[in-house]
Design a protein around this nucleic acid. Structure first.
Lengths: 158, 158
DNA sequence: GCAAATTAGTCAACCAAGTTGACCGAACAC
DNA sequence: GTGTTCGGTCAACTTGGTTGACTAATTTGC
């Protein structure tokens, strides 16, 4: 292998490492791993990242499965599974929808509400932690940039 | 449901949407979806995102499975499966390592090299496309911020 | 007012991208 | 040489989804 190939490899690897999509992926994983860790450490050992897909969209009044699916941008089946799981862990409960005999309203239980509040406190704290790594105001600029980007690329996204 | 709860819900949803981890996740998915689309459109219908885990780390001289696993930050088994898949699609080939009878060297085939070059051209073009959405220089600042962040949070990461 | 089409939700089977664990054969330590 | 470590694979499992088929309830059209 020639010295030149090695250099070319290094250059190409270096360019690839800077591709914005890859940086987004690494950053999102770094965030998620820490979030899960913190929430587990709080005593919610059964917390799972996919719980978020439901928890993040729940309103105080409760929501239908299909409503949650729309908001999350996944299928009803995916939400249905997660809800089932959350039910087994006593974090949400389903009650019949008075307005529609087919539908059911998914609502947080007391335990669910407690976990959700504690979990989001951790997540917001983690956001601050990320902000503190960068010079003052820089994360806020990144956040704003991402919001602009996503408005174009993924409008109405989850 | 009281007017007040609805407002509180809206505020909370709004705060959650701005959590940096979630923005990273959405942005990384938006990027990946477009990258895959573009590469497929190029005629490489069999391209899969996980291919990247191997392709991105391959040197001209070829690499061992375990070397790729180290670089990618996943298990040897995961790389082994992807390599097997790439082999079936005639994108890489394995040859025995002359220096170690246990090992094998994974190398791009001609078709693999061609695909990789074309694919990365698309990815770099996509990076430019993302940059063009934001005011001049802003994506570059985001990139730099992410590199700083990841150096702290995920040093030596993939 | 009632048949036809749509909607809410679930069940089951599958898929993608990993993981852990058991194992084989080659290489290394001494 | 024998014991341990290393390179790689195979198999089974896990997570977070998907598509497809179905039931029961509701809405639409006439």
């Amino acid at each position: 292998m020639s010295k030149q190939s090695e250099e070319e490899d290094r250059d190409l690897h270096e360019r690839r490492k800077r591709v914005i999509g890859r940086l987004f992926l690494r950053a999102s994983r770094a965030f998620e791993a820490r979030a899960v860790e913190r929430i587990h450490a709080l005593g919610y050992e059964d917390y799972r990242p996919s719980d978020n897909l439901v928890l993040i969209h729940l309103d105080t009044r409760g929501n239908r499965v299909s409503e949650l699916a729309d908001r999350a941008g996944v299928t009803k089946q995916a939400i249905s599974k997660i809800v089932h799981d959350l039910e087994n862990r006593n974090l949400v409960a389903k009650e019949p929808d008075p307005d529609d005999g087919r539908a059911q309203i998914v609502k947080l239980t007391d335990r669910g509400l407690e976990m959700m509040m504690d979990a989001f406190e951790e997540v917001f704290a983690l956001d601050d932690e990320f902000a503190s790594i960068l010079p003052d105001g820089d994360l806020e600029k990144i956040r704003q940039g991402l919001l602009t980007l996503l408005e174009k690329l993924d409008p109405g996204g989850f």
